[in-house]
């Protein structure tokens, strides 16, 4: 393997890794934004929309960073161009190019964040499970060798700390609330738990990013994450660990693939709505 190819691989890994972080934030941000105007009460409508805006803000930071890297390569006209360019965006790449003009299979978000909102319990649980993961992820990412990633992580961690607090409170409130809310939480766990394993399963680009000191080894986040989930679930009188067959069966089979572009059917619908304007009126601004 020649040197050029090595550099290419390393750039690819960093770009894919950053895109993965961005896509996670964008898709969950978009999901939460679907609640805007539909929240159960005014105050929570604003709360979930704030979280949505936080996440989309994080996504923007990551996308801008990816766009910069790609444009730098385009300027040098080097043969080491990252493979993402082979598909050809045409011209300068911006954060919008990355969010609005990539297809389903190019998105690297995990399966958990693209799951439908369902009822309030499911939205809350999805946010809680993901915020807990993001909390430990960003804590580690602050020490990344890549200064840009470290800076974004440090800035975003403050937001995520609040998301985790908000999500934890709601999980406890609903889990340890009425029969109805408890049942809804159980149903939400049954629908979402199968997507949590993917968070801690490293893809090739993640491992490469870890090897180069820019990424976080997600396998190491599993223990603190499980501890946090168990702590909150036990306070919420919810079963831990969640088992198949309504708690009587075995460990739940874990779905993976989203981080490598193999998504559930739901992502296509999200992108159809998210990308419609730019696809129909390319380059439109307002």
């Amino acid at each position: 393997m020649n040197r050029e190819k090595l550099i290419n691989q390393s750039t690819d890994a960093l770009i894919n890794y950053t895109l993965h972080l961005a896509d996670d934030a964008l898709i969950l941000g978009h999901r939460n934004s679907e609640w805007c105007g539909h929240g159960p009460v005014l105050e929570q409508d604003i709360a979930i929309t704030n979280i949505s805006l936080d996440l989309i803000g994080q996504a923007r930071n990551f996308y801008q960073y990816v766009a910069r890297q790609i444009n730098d390569f385009q300027k040098t006209e080097s043969s080491q161009a990252p493979s993402l360019l082979e598909r050809g965006f045409g011209g300068e790449v911006t954060e919008d190019t990355l969010a609005y003009l990539r297809d389903n299979r190019e998105f690297k978000n995990c399966l958990l964040v693209e799951q439908p909102n369902g009822d309030w319990a499911k939205t809350i649980l999805r946010q809680f499970l993901f915020s807990a993961y993001q909390f430990y992820l960003y804590q580690e990412l602050q020490d990344s060798k890549d200064e840009q990633l470290a800076a974004i992580a440090e800035k975003s961690l403050k937001e995520v700390t609040y998301h985790l607090r908000w999500g934890s409170e709601w999980v406890i409130r609903l889990g340890d609330g009425t029969d109805e809310s408890h049942q809804r939480m159980l149903k939400a766990i049954e629908e979402l738990w199968m997507y949590t394993g993917e968070l801690f399963t490293a893809t090739a680009y993640e491992s490469q990013a870890v090897a180069e000191g820019s990424g976080v080894d997600v396998r190491l986040l599993k223990a603190p994450w499980e501890e946090k989930i168990e702590e909150i679930f036990s306070e919420a009188t919810l079963p831990y660990p969640p088992l198949s067959g309504g708690g009587k069966g075995e460990a739940v089979f874990q779905q993976t693939g989203g981080k490598e572009g193999k998504h559930t059917e739901h992502l296509g619908y999200i992108l159809a709505e998210l990308q419609f304007m730019q696809r129909t009126y390319p380059g439109s601004e307002w």
Binding site: V41, L42, E43, I46, A47, Y162, R165, W166, E169
Partner: peptide, 17 residues
């Protein structure tokens, strides 16, 4: 003013609103 189930939630809602 705003609605909340308890003081804790009221503070968080106030933060958000």
């Amino acid at each position: 003013s705003l609605h909340a189930a308890d003081a804790q939630m009221a503070i968080e809602n106030a933060r958000d609103v």
